[in-house]
Design a binder for these strands. Structure first.
Lengths: 192, 192
DNA sequence: TAGGATGAGTGACATAGGTCACATTCTGCG
DNA sequence: CGCAGAATGTGACCTATGTCACTCATCCTA
């Protein structure tokens, strides 16, 4: 499917845009491609854009003392990502976003999004609902952290994204679940 | 300060409304009062409203098997709360919101908020940014959970909301931090 | 095609934090 | 005023998970 069509269908789930409005909406986005391993946002960067993934897979993570990696999000096609704290507050990036596989995105700058939102009420509506959903998902994950042990979280994750199991290395899954790779290895070898 | 004024100043930090627009905005809200211990949203309820706290303090929490309580949020004056998963998706409440002290709020129904947002572009803008901030805060808390031990999280919380220490019982702070009350007690008695 | 990354499994041990039991305040209200 | 429940502190013990050290398999790529 064409880039534009992927975005169109994604937007259409939330907001109603005329053909003309969508063309305007789309004109603010810029296609970009990245290679596996490439870093899109690095710690300390000024963050200017957010990204809508068309194909491939990204991860957004925090590095603790250059030792431990904590993954906030795997970003699959039709999901959005950025260091939103840095993007919204115009501070330096504290998280890193890089490519688990070759990835194509549509990017939009903070400035362009705000312009778009002020020009087009339905764009504002769309971005409000996108974040609403993200907020609910973040709360749910927080609750899962507080309430469940590592094994339950592991099973939850696989139920939600079966594709991940074969797509990303296990030590990254461990970094998402907040356990060591050794513990993760023991968990799924014990549950067979 | 009058209720209306509190809301006005809160909105003004994000959005620009004319006097007339704010009157319209405000007309959708309804003042409500609750007593300490009163339950505002209970598990299984249909959730129709969200709440803007004027005075007092609420907590939003999840009960695990009627045994363990996990607190998602303490809601202090000028913060918003609801079971947003239930409110947005029109599902039954899975979290409980009750009053830590006598509390006054302004409530707005889901329906009214949507009507308001469609009528008034700046309202849409306001609610978009409110959730943006909530999302960033939720991510930050998630990261803190993954990255820090209980003691660090405890110190973080007190640094952020010194008022909480004297306002809410310690076992509730423990339920927010995701540790047992015994552990919390040991933490701050050891750090003196 | 060999050698160095990279990913993964596993045993031994350390430790943060949970659980249980009981003692000790505090506090609101009859 | 006094007492029943909350709220809190603390000791003893348990358990999930982390850490370290080592091994083995896989897969690039020079």
């Amino acid at each position: 499917m064409e880039d534009k069509e992927i975005l169109r269908q994604h937007i259409a789930k939330t907001a109603s845009l005329t053909e003309e409005e969508f063309e305007h909406f789309f004109s603010y986005f810029k296609p970009e491609s990245f290679k596996k391993g490439e870093i899109i946002i690095n710690e300390g960067d000024n963050v200017e854009k957010e990204y809508f993934v068309l194909s491939g897979c990204l991860k957004a993570f925090f590095m603790n003392d250059n030792i431990k990696m904590h993954i906030l999000q795997f970003t699959m096609p039709t999901w959005w990502t950025s260091d939103y704290a840095a993007l919204y507050n115009k501070t330096k990036a504290t998280i890193i976003i890089d490519c688990i596989s070759d990835t194509e995105v549509l990017s939009i700058t903070n400035e362009a999004r705000e312009k778009l939102c002020s020009e087009l009420h339905q764009a504002e509506y769309f971005f409000r609902w996108r974040t609403n959903k993200g907020y609910v998902a973040a709360q749910k994950r927080l609750l899962s952290f507080m309430n469940n042990d590592a094994k339950t979280r592991y099973e939850e994750l696989l139920a939600l994204y079966p594709a991940l199991y074969n797509m990303v290395p296990k030590h990254l899954i461990a970094a998402y679940l907040g356990v060591s790779r050794e513990t993760l290895s023991r968990l799924y070898n014990s549950s067979k």
